[in-house]
Design a protein around this nucleic acid. Structure first.
Lengths: 245, 245
DNA sequence: CCTAACTGTGTCCATCGGAAGCAGTTCTAT
DNA sequence: ATAGAACTGCTTCCGATGGACACAGTTAGG
């Protein structure tokens, strides 16, 4: 598991060649081609061959730009994530965190493969780090420790990821591949052994549609409010660590 | 993406052959061999060839038991998850949910590849459904709707997954592949553009070690407590939906 | 018995990620 | 101006992968 390649590719200010033919491709063009394939046919359909073919080049040409496939996928994922919204609204800390989390969803929904691509040890890219920065800025001066601020992020982002994963459908057609639907199908004939699951599904079937995202966010943010209180978002609480900027 | 194979493999009460030679292998033995490989060398090292070789059989023999590799991985994942603890302790609802979530962690830590194996559309297996049942039973009669009960699960389990993913190290040696360490390395030279991240990292470096799991669980459970109150765990609150069993 | 059902295996194939070396092109140093 | 260094895209080649298919041996039920 060598991550230096991804690190240099994602973060390297590349010097730019001074001799030789002009490069016909760019990292971004290659990554966008891969993204288009992954969006349409899933991450498994992304091969060096396929990306190169869609670009009208040979497979080995890509290796002039990208050290390997995993690095290409990392590039795709960071690009697909996009940049965080410049403005999170005028509300208090919790409203802005809510807006941040909600803004995270469309990227995951439009590019479900990002979930697969960002599991396991990996290098964080500029866009992902910008998202992290945006949320940490909201938590600045809230009386939380550094690790705690990171943890709040992780919980929020993790919830959005989960929702996106549940909502990941096979856009080609059968909605039966939804996780909830699969669970329902499994439980339908074996409900006796899983009464609580059956009851929850039966209730959920009649109720509202897609409150999962908001419900979870409210849960987490309510817990946060109980912990840090409704302190003014722009002033640090007394006793906050003065070492933070 | 055909999931019927996984469904039948994970859930099928197979009729059992009545003629022909006795099968020399079992689903469980094959899956356990795959689990051993994945634990030691990662999910990428699990190939049909490799699993068969470790069993002393030919690659194609496995296809007599398993329809394909993805189904084998699904079997491995469900088996590695294990069964939920029979007893979640004597505390109130929140303490038992906490115990449930904490009990989820060791499986993920011992088998980090399960995180990769369980992203994307998939079929839920018996063990995973048993975990779901255990937590839903705790939430029974708490005055939550069916979908809300599922959402609470998703938030809790998602948090544990996140923590496990962050804690996933390369056991071979270099701890530099930890996500936090990678972030720190990236930010070290680019901290000016990410001041909030830098501040959080600087604070976190000096502080305590691994409070992330407990902190997040407290956050979520505090939010839950704020929502449903400290109602008696064994009696439904007035106004609870009577359609639930 | 003898045939249907089932086992494990050997062979074959398309595809994958990637290494190595090639000829052509362009910039820089002389 | 010119030689060589640097760079491009390409061709060729390789081992490994997941899987289709047909085959011979083995067992149990009619």
């Amino acid at each position: 598991m060598d991550l230096t390649g991804s690190l240099e590719l994602l973060w390297g200010d590349r010097p730019g060649p001074r001799r030789g033919p002009k490069p016909a491709l760019t990292h971004e063009l290659i990554a966008r081609t891969g993204i288009a394939i992954a969006d349409a046919e899933g991450l498994a359909a992304v091969s060096m061959q396929r990306v190169a073919a869609d670009l009208g080049f040979t497979k080995m040409s890509l290796y002039r730009y990208v050290p390997g496939k995993s690095e290409l996928v990392a590039l795709m994922a960071d690009l697909a994530m996009g940049t965080p919204p410049a403005d999170l609204g005028e509300g208090d800390r919790f409203a802005r965190l809510r807006a941040w989390a909600l803004g995270l969803l469309p990227g995951f929904v439009r590019h479900p493969w990002v979930l697969e691509a960002t599991t396991g040890p990996r290098v964080i890219g500029p866009n992902e780090l910008a998202w992290m920065e945006a949320a940490l800025a909201v938590l600045d001066g809230a009386g939380l420790g550094g690790a705690e601020r990171m943890d709040v992020l992780a919980v929020l982002a993790g919830h959005v990821r989960n929702i996106a994963q549940q909502a990941a459908t096979a856009p080609g057609g059968d909605a039966g591949t939804q996780f909830g639907a699969i669970v329902a199908e499994v439980v339908r004939e074996r409900g006796d052994r899983y009464p609580a699951v059956r009851a929850a599904l039966a209730e959920a079937a009649g109720g509202g549609e897609d409150e999962a995202l908001g419900f979870g966010l409210d849960l987490i943010l309510d817990g946060l409010r109980a912990r840090i209180g409704d302190a003014s978002p722009t002033r640090a609480r007394p006793g906050a660590d003065p070492t933070q900027s």
